[in-house]
Design a protein around this nucleic acid. Structure first.
Lengths: 323, 323
DNA sequence: CTGAAAGCGCTAACAA
DNA sequence: TTGTTAGCGCTTTCAG
């Protein structure tokens, strides 16, 4: 199927019997201009009839700035929730005329900076702070604003704290931490672990006993052996998948939660609900983070001061049988 | 942080002591041109030193076609695997100079056609066929090629067949099908169910007994009751999460897999490995699908005949304890 | 082998 | 109130 030649703004102007300027003014609803309703109608009608869509590249070139925001989705198994986050962000940005697209980072994909430059993104939004080279590259690639700009707190620490606090509140005094082995998430896990350690320190109990495991029974069973030897009674897992692995490792030893050891995850993935036993976990409100991110983008683009600077998560406990 | 003015191709030309034409030729490695190595070096050096990146919009405008491909990710729970698919697709397209970005479809997000036009995508790639209006809109928005073009088979049926066949091979004669309740995936589930039914028909056994369930224990337990009454011995679940729910439902009744009823899922999510019992499931090779999709895009863009037309999945059985 | 010049489709001063 | 005009940064034909 061959595509018919695309109508340009000149075509619309001709069809409506006006100049291109007028077309531009009408279609962009330019303030401060007083175009007679009749003329406007004619322009709209012509544009509609011809199926006119402004050429984005031409517009961007002329305006000097695109209306595209690029979301860099890290190469993490962020599974559940991420799409809700993306949608919320897209909606928030759309209110300000920005279109959001996503780049899924990966080993073989093109570098983020290239993508940014290829699509001419005005704003780039990430989850964690970008390293300095990337940041510089992004600006070179034409981004006007990059978020998070610098070493902004990623908000992962508080999650770990919240997680540990739940266990502490239920009387646990020997806390274990289940670290994932997947190197992609190590940094995030370390941040969360830090939060757990802080909570322990604040409660004046021993720091968490850390063991790492894959999402698989054998290594988890080994880790469980380690915790058992240290008389750990409650385990904070990096996320639900890791928690599920720990549960499997315990099963292997004939141990069960929460009687022998309590386990708490993070994320509230669907599988957590139907695990044996159902997994206590933490969910957090991505919508709020999305709105803050959007606010920062708009602020940066318009030169206004951002309403909020810190991207905080609002953790919510999902109490189930495993604790 | 204010971004320094971006260097243009003229800046590079000036710095290298050549014309913009030469810069363009060198940087685009234009064939049929014989530029002296020394000149080339000077251009590269200047571009590097200035941190020059060609302006995508300007290039697109001049060339008449962007190098952007847009992937429309449907509003499904982004389960596992999708990101691997995206990466494979991105990599395959990158080999041909195309940059892939994704649009997560959603209730509140901007319509796909708008996104397409805003980013000036040359190609739009979907999972299922687009409806006629969308298709038309996409072409109007400037897309040169849209895939899947028309009512192409989505390749989900064969997966269901494969799944059922495994149960049949192991001697099961009363097959059940666990349908998800999440309306977003109903269509996909129906396609898979069709495949299961075909396999049953081919093996000359009764059609599958269908019950639906959420990813949650109560409804799953109800469904299990239904299957038990029908003396079902093997259940094909829509996906792993649904399968996990079925397992939980069985547990509720004191039934265990595979002794009482065998269960098989689809997707091979991490949680399947550590379920009780570990879940037999099916993984399919998204890489291959990605490559075919990419091939079709490139073919369409260059006018060449596509190498392959049907997007087939290569299902692979992951045998674990639940069957 | 390199440069001059003409657009690509749109926006935005500036005139009329 | 509307039209004229000059770019935005890049590619590409055509001369030199």
């Amino acid at each position: 199927m061959t595509r018919p030649k695309r109508p340009t703004s000149s075509d619309v102007a001709r069809a409506a019997g006006v100049s291109r300027t007028t077309v531009s003014f009408v279609l962009n609803n330019r303030p401060g201009q007083t175009i007679p309703p009749e003329t406007r109608r004619r322009v709209f009608e012509a544009a509609e009839r011809l199926g006119y869509r402004p050429h984005a590249s031409a517009r961007t070139l002329a305006r000097g700035r695109s209306n595209i925001a690029l979301l860099a989705i890290p190469d993490l198994p962020m599974e559940t929730g991420i799409s809700r986050f993306v949608e919320a962000l897209a909606a928030a940005l759309a209110e300000h005329g920005l279109t959001l697209v996503a780049h899924l980072a990966g080993r073989n994909g093109r570098p983020l900076t290239d993508v940014c430059s290829d699509i001419g993104a005005s704003a780039v939004i990430g989850f964690e702070a970008f390293d300095d080279d990337t940041l510089k590259g992004l600006y070179q690639a034409g981004a006007d604003i990059v978020i998070p700009a610098s070493k902004e707190r990623s908000g992962m620490g508080p999650i770990g704290q919240f997680q540990a606090q739940h266990l502490i509140d239920r009387g646990h005094r020997r806390i274990g931490y289940a670290m994932p082995r997947n190197s992609k998430v190590i940094r995030m896990a370390e941040e969360r672990l830090r939060g757990v350690a802080e909570a322990c320190a604040a409660a004046d109990i021993a720091p968490p006993i850390v063991h790492s495991t894959d999402v698989e029974t054998a290594t988890a069973a080994q880790a469980v052996t380690g915790w058992a030897e240290e008389a750990v009674t409650g385990i904070c897992a990096f996320n639900d998948e890791t928690a599920l692995a720990v549960l499997a490792g315990m099963r292997e030893h004939g141990l069960s939660a929460p009687t022998d050891i309590a386990v708490i995850g993070i994320d509230d993935i669907p599988a957590a609900r139907v695990a044996a036993p159902p997994l206590t976990t933490i969910r957090f409100d991505l919508d709020e983070v999305a709105h803050r991110r959007a606010d920062m983008v708009i602020a940066g683009l318009t030169g206004r001061e951002p309403t909020s600077t810190i991207a905080a998560f609002s953790p919510q406990l999902i109490q189930r049988a495993s604790t």
